[in-house]
Write a protein that binds this DNA or RNA. Structure first.
Lengths: 399, 399
DNA sequence: GGGCCTTTGTCCTCTGCGTGGAGAAAGTTG
DNA sequence: CAACTTTCTCCACGCAGAGGACAAAGGCCC
């Protein structure tokens, strides 16, 4: 089928498309209430959007006391692809234009294999989604990568955990392969956008989104927009020092947050505890059948749930350290919300409680007074929804 | 005389006014080059501004190869008042519409005396400036206070070092007393705006401005706009913990940056060193004639310049601690510039060197690669220029 | 000094956006 | 079925802004 080629011709049309994306099908009259345009002008713009095929008529709306209005919705055959590349796995999802996830696949993978191998896999996953009848093609794709990105060009810059990606023209290459517009961003920023669009951060303008996975990063949203910093490395809080002369870190320093608490650090600690015999629960897991050599955050969570003291202590200590850093960020940034997400969120409320304690104790009341600190609500779909949102923001803006 | 009553009627006029403010007198042709409007449209808007009296003709411009153009400038009789209230002194200045400081007075004062007493003094200082012929009245005033402000209303909220100001309607009250529009902001934010307008931060979009005075604060500029946070307390970095179980702080916690290094902490340390006899230079200062009981940052600077080892060590240690915090902020915020200012800047390059060392060592190369860390260039005028800028931004925006 | 070019300023026309009103169409309520 | 609401369409008018034509003013070269 023909893919979306048209783009909104002016700011009004872009505004309308975003309203339809965020609010679902809407009557012309309801749209009129939201955009402050005269009825005639609105009718003209809607008609033009109908002509382009970006939106379609969708039956009659319920009456609001008089004549019933016609419903309008985004073209139901529009498809966005959301790709979230993590350190050890990829998520790929298809959404419609309203950013509802229609299909989602996840596969283990190692970013260190380099962009060519990874994108081969991503394309295969996208093809699988297509083959299952969810899409006949894609109108745009958003890609998240676990490292800093020069945003306008869509190119990773000096990513510590993915050497070989430095300077690889991700946007350019994928745009070629997929035959549609592509935008690239840091995975943490996309998680923030996802939670903003469909998760806990709806209607919050300034917030932080902390992702604790293999590494630790932080998405920063200022005035509803993601802030990326001067070189695209804003939010890189994994290498803030939490322990003078602490553990050596891959970055060359000592005592980085990431060296003391993150998916990777936690796994190391857990294995150490298992082998030293301090933790019977973890030792049992290591010796269990089908174990393939590595403990994970989920294992630690399981051990903690079973009452293992060492596992609980690992989580609590990590939460304290993370909370200490977050307390500093809260003082500095004064957000309206802090979202915690990423693979380690399996540790759940033990972790959250430790973080909260630390933040509420260390930051000033004015900043913490009405500050919710919550777990992300979307889990692994936050990234792909954020990716879809990224490209739709791009496409639903004046040409 | 009649004061400015008119305001720009639309975004174009506001744009033109700001261009004239930031670029000084300009020919109509030069303005045309900058605003992307047709000559006819530009002429219409300029004529309207001339009618309002906000701008005036100012002779002929130099030829650019053809007919000479007429110069336009902001009305030379416009006056803004900039007020910078510190913990222990006030700065009041008059500027013209181009934000050039025409007169500047500084007086010692104690904020803890409360808003009524302080504003009495401020009004007297403003009257003095008026009496010296610099102004016949004020078209607007910007006020900086040393604590968080609910910005839209111009009201201090829960300011730690100025109890008695909490909830005082500063904007409202001063607007009454001065008979002109008033805007209120945190003093650190104003310093940032000052350095952005006329100092080292010109043409930088994202930067941090760290003010080390009686306390420590940080102005945050995102995309050229000051970021104030959800409750107006963004940038409050004085209470970030730098030393677990460190010195007790007025905020109730221990180990806050401000407890270990700030104008107040430095003075205490210096006096301690003087009395214990570890520092001959400082002891000499204390015993010198005319000494009124308190050492200051300037005294420490003098001692350090004279080679006093203890003074140097105090500065170096403070710089290390500050640098440690800034390193974290740099990782998080990825600014394009860090400006250091405030009373303690007298400590100069010893301090700067210590900060730089710490930041460049602790933050990742991608964030520090091209990151200048410099002293503010405006000193005590940064605040008042920022204050004038604040109110002019307000007045030079569409009504 | 004179001719020619460039730049600037003014005037005029034309286009097209957007408003607001009138009136028809479609529903609801009593 | 009548009266009132809401929605939709059509139309006329106002107006902002673009762009061209032309005049004014100065520079440059001979």
């Amino acid at each position: 089928m023909r893919r979306m080629t048209a783009r909104p011709a002016n700011a009004h049309q872009a505004r309308l498309l975003r309203l339809l994306r965020d609010g679902g099908p809407n009557s012309r009259a309801q749209l009129g209430d939201q955009v402050d345009l005269s009825r005639s002008k609105l009718a003209v713009e809607v008609d033009r959007l109908l002509e382009t095929g970006l939106v379609v008529a969708d039956g009659l709306a319920a009456s609001r006391g008089g004549r019933r209005s016609h419903n309008i919705r985004l073209a139901p055959e529009l498809r966005f692809l959301g790709v979230d590349i993590g350190a050890t796995s990829v998520d790929v999802a298809v959404t419609n234009a309203e950013l509802e996830v229609l299909g989602h696949v996840n596969q283990p993978m190692d970013v260190r294999e380099g962009p060519v191998a990874v994108f081969e896999q991503v394309l295969a996953m996208a093809a699988k989604l297509k083959a299952s009848g969810l899409a006949e093609g894609f109108d745009g794709a958003g890609i998240g990568v676990p490292g800093p990105v020069r945003f306008p060009e869509g190119v990773p810059v000096a990513p510590p955990i993915m050497p070989g990606w430095d300077g690889f023209p991700v946007r350019e290459a994928l745009s070629q392969d997929l035959g549609c517009p592509v935008m690239v961003d840091n995975d943490v920023n996309l998680m923030a956008m996802g939670e903003q669009h469909a998760g806990v951060a709806r209607s919050v303008h300034d917030f932080l989104c902390i992702k604790i996975g293999t590494g630790i990063g932080c998405g920063i949203v200022v005035g509803g927009e993601v802030y990326r910093g001067t070189t695209g490395s804003a939010g890189d809080i994994g290498h803030i020092q939490v322990e003078p002369d602490g553990r050596p870190c891959a970055c060359g320093n000592r005592g980085c947050l990431e060296a003391h608490f993150s998916g990777a650090a936690l796994a190391r600690d857990a294995e150490e505890a298992a082998h030293s015999g301090r933790s019977p629960e973890l030792a049992a897991l290591v010796e269990a059948e089908g174990f393939e050599g590595r403990l994970s955050a989920a294992d630690v969570a399981a051990a903690a749930a079973a009452g293992d003291a060492v596992a609980l202590e690992l989580i609590r200590e990590g939460g304290n350290r993370t909370g200490q850093v977050i307390a500093g960020l809260v003082s500095f940034f004064n957000p309206g919300l802090v979202v915690i997400g990423g693979g380690v969120t399996g540790l759940g409320h033990t972790l959250l409680a430790a973080i909260r304690t630390q933040v509420y104790r260390q930051s000033l009341p004015l900043a913490t007074g009405n500050l919710p600190i919550v777990l992300g609500e979307l889990g692994p779909t936050a990234g792909v929804i954020g990716a879809a949102r990224l490209i739709s923001d791009h496409l639903f803006s004046p040409a």
